[in-house]
């Protein structure tokens, strides 16, 4: 079964995953086009984080197909490395490298993986820092920044590899409330600039504003997907309605 890029930049067909005996992903099928912003929501334990982590092979799927930008995710070393270079990820726990400055955090991968020249990488890094709004923090260490600033550095670090797709795993869940907005603003600007994004989040305001589609996950299955309008006003499944009533208060 061959796949061309016309079908979508991400194509998932019947993806299954088990953690031991626990069936965490039960046949997920999803297609995404370039430039789309998809928000995934659902109760905890529903498998949404696991799902996006299978896309850049942080988790291995056991059945089904995942095809990113025409490359299929298999045990092929070359494919995995190629896909990792095209997909950027932002974590809930930031995971900045504490022993490197902000600038070094951002330039590390371009220099070592893309074999870029250090000065070139630093230029790009500064541009990205300006884009996320914190150019003055370039020479500080992560421990000296606030949570919101750290997360913005994470976004800049991911963008430095010029990915085609950005994955966000609950990016604001670990932030203090007053810092959530600054990160969401950056993400909104990213979405408007045409980046393909999958965002796992509870921030429904963000979803309403920039998402092209919202997907509801529960018990490892894709229960409902729809445009934000339809999703919030006309949820079709009982589970969706229950979930929405719990989080929209």
């Amino acid at each position: 079964m061959s796949v061309t890029r016309d079908q979508g930049i991400i194509v998932c067909r019947d993806v299954h995953k088990w953690f031991g005996d626990f069936h965490v992903l039960r046949g997920i099928s999803l297609t995404m086009q370039k430039g789309e912003v998809v928000v995934i929501c659902g109760p905890s334990g529903s498998g949404k984080s696991t799902f996006i982590r299978t896309i850049n092979r942080l988790e291995e799927h056991q059945r089904g197909q995942i095809i990113v930008d025409g490359i299929e995710l298999t045990h092929d070393l070359r494919n995995i490395e190629a896909i990792r270079r095209e997909v950027g990820m932002v974590f809930q726990q930031f995971n900045l490298f504490p022993h490197l400055t902000v600038m070094q955090n951002i330039t590390l991968a371009p220099v070592w993986v893309l074999k870029m020249k250090k000065s070139e990488a630093q230029e790009i890094a500064m541009q990205l820092l300006e884009r996320v709004g914190i150019p003055e923090q370039a020479n500080k260490y992560p421990g000296q920044l606030s949570g919101g600033q750290q997360q913005r550095v994470v976004i800049a670090r991911a963008l430095a590899m010029t990915p085609k797709i950005m994955l966000f795993d609950e990016p604001t869940s670990a932030l203090d409330p007053e810092m959530i907005k600054e990160v969401l603003d950056v993400m909104k600007e990213l979405a408007r600039s045409g980046m393909t994004m999958i965002v796992v989040t509870h921030e429904m305001g963000f979803a309403r504003e920039v998402a092209d589609r919202i997907i509801f996950f529960d018990f490892g299955q894709l229960i409902e997907e729809n445009t934000p309008e339809e999703f919030f006003h006309n949820p079709k499944h009982e589970r969706t309605k229950l979930f929405l009533s719990q989080i929209l208060h």
Partner: peptide, 15 residues
């Protein structure tokens, strides 16, 4: 070129 899920050359297969 499109990669299919068959025939990964063994020198690149992680397993």
């Amino acid at each position: 070129k499109v990669a299919s899920s068959h025939a990964i050359p063994f020198w690149r297969d992680i397993r």
